[in-house]
Design a protein around this nucleic acid. Structure first.
Length: 475
DNA sequence: GCTACCCGTGCC
DNA sequence: GGCACGGGTAGC
């Protein structure tokens, strides 16, 4: 059994995600609820968020303890809430996730910013990391290692959770001394030794590798190894390059260190000063974690997502690449415009199959700046108008619970067009593209078939499993 | 005393 | 073996 030599052993840790198998649904739910609550005094904010968590399917009978744990741990890890004066409020990241529902992008950004030391662990833990001189960005290190190994040896380089745990995460020669990634690869590939695979030991590195999969940067094969996702070459290069901005604890505490060096403080005083400085950095960390990145930097490239090597052997999924070839012109757009392009194709096909070739040319995309309250003007088979608002989500795995936001204008337009107004909910994942069609959302709401909460328009929630709105995508 | 990550334990 | 509940417990 391989063990890191004692003098180099330092076990890294981050808050443990609950709901691991359901993380996409929980994250969108939490972000949406946090945005819905808005800016509120601390106690009220916490209470309202607890109430929301309690309403999440399966939580009705959980103890208060579990509810509190959800609230604090999800926020600690993903930085969805920030302090502002005496209030708590949603962060930019929470708003972006709630509104755009681009989970792949969310995880890319998360992995990009994730580092040790980092604001997601308690201050005294960060102090230990700083005292140990740890300075480690796991996404950058892992992606660089796999990329360089592939370049040098011309192979497909894959790693297991256990290898990443014992040869990268828990070894100061990497996390403190920045051993060249290729050297680490050589070590891993030459080892031929057993590793400790038991639960908690490999949990943290394992979770992080899974986040890289959610970000579409790695793929996990049935042999339990993680490989670079060839379809995301450009994004991977962004992780490998030096960062555009950085959150360097060591630079930020430099002046304090100088002050300590110049004075005869006791050990307790030094610890207190350091902890207080790290506490001060906490809000700055949340702001750093929420720095918006330019769209072309991280917006999900839908082509890359669906042309990724599949992680299962299912053969009954539709051939997504065929669909995407047809909309190749849009491949650099954000997920919203790709979704709209897919729906234009879908509508043309629907009219064709309905024998109305004469109406095809009337399917039109309406640019957002016209503020019509819908994205696409299409036709019914009887020639009547069908106005369509497209709402798109991406994630690595399929998600089942879904919500979307309609602006005040969209909701008002929906109300006036009634049965002529449709919401096309398009959910793009590595495994499939699913389309849910909601005709006349205002009526569905009045008939209690969907839920909607007013917030600068309406937050609409429906359950894709039980509501029966699913429609086959025709492209 | 309370809060919020930490992580043992037991379920699936 | 993976995963989450909810008790543990350090630090505020």
């Amino acid at each position: 059994m391989y063990k890191v030599p004692d003098q180099f052993y330092f076990r890294l840790h981050h808050p443990r995600p609950r709901f691991k198998s359901n993380i996409e649904n929980v994250l969108i739910y939490m972000a949406s609820e946090i945005v819905q609550i808005g800016s509120k005094p601390k106690a009220e904010f916490k209470q309202r968020l607890n109430d929301s968590i309690r309403m999440f399917p399966g939580n009705l009978n959980s103890t208060q303890k579990t509810i509190d744990n959800w609230r604090t741990e999800i926020d600690a890890l993903f930085a969805l809430i920030q302090e502002n004066d005496q209030n708590l409020e949603p962060t930019y990241r929470a708003v972006d996730l709630a509104e755009n529902q681009d989970l792949v992008k969310f995880f890319k950004v998360f992995c990009y910013y994730f580092q040790y030391p980092g604001g997601f662990v308690k201050n005294h833990v960060n102090l230990e990391l700083i005292n140990a001189r740890i300075n480690f960005k796991p996404a950058q290190y892992i992606l660089t290692m796999l990329f360089e190994a592939e370049q040098k040896y011309g192979i497909r380089a894959g790693v297991t959770k256990a290898e990443v745990t014992h040869c990268i995460f828990n070894d100061l020669r990497v996390t403190r001394d920045h051993r060249p990634p290729l050297d680490t690869w050589d070590l891993i590939s030459s080892h031929g030794v057993e590793y400790d695979w038991t639960g908690d030991v490999i949990r943290y590195a394992g979770d992080f590798l899974d986040y890289l999969v959610q970000a579409n940067l790695l793929i996990r094969r049935p042999n339990q190894k993680y490989y670079l996702n060839k379809a995301e070459g450009a994004a991977i290069q962004r992780f490998i390059k030096p960062y555009e901005n950085d959150f360097n604890y060591y630079n930020k505490i430099e002046s304090l260190i100088r002050e300590i060096d110049g004075n005869a403080f006791s050990e307790d005083e030094i610890k207190r000063l350091m902890l207080s400085k790290i506490t001060d950095l906490e809000n700055e960390w949340i702001r750093y974690f929420n720095t918006p990145l330019s769209d072309e930097f991280f917006d999900t490239d839908v082509i890359s997502l669906v042309t990724s090597e599949s992680t299962n052997d299912s053969t009954d999924t539709i051939d997504l690449s065929v669909i995407l070839e047809e909309i190749a012109d849009y491949s650099t757009g954000n997920i919203g415009s790709v979704g709209e392009a897919i729906i234009v194709k879908h509508e043309v096909k629907r009219l064709e199959l309905g024998g109305r070739l004469d109406l095809k040319h009337l399917v039109k995309f309406i640019p957002t700046h016209f503020a019509m309250g819908y994205d696409i003007s299409s036709r019914e088979l009887d020639g009547g108008i069908r106005n369509i608002e497209v709402k798109t989500t991406t994630s690595s795995r399929e998600i089942h619970f879904t919500r979307f936001h309609l602006t005040p204008n969209e909701w008002a337009v929906a109300e006036s067009y009634q049965d002529r107004y449709y919401v096309y909910r398009l959910m793009i994942s590595k495994e499939s593209i699913k389309l849910y069609i909601l005709q006349n959302p205002v009526r569905l709401y009045k008939e209690d078939r969907i839920k909607a909460l007013p917030r600068d328009g309406m937050d609409v929630t429906f359950d894709s499993k039980s509501s029966g709105f699913v429609e086959e995508l025709l492209v």
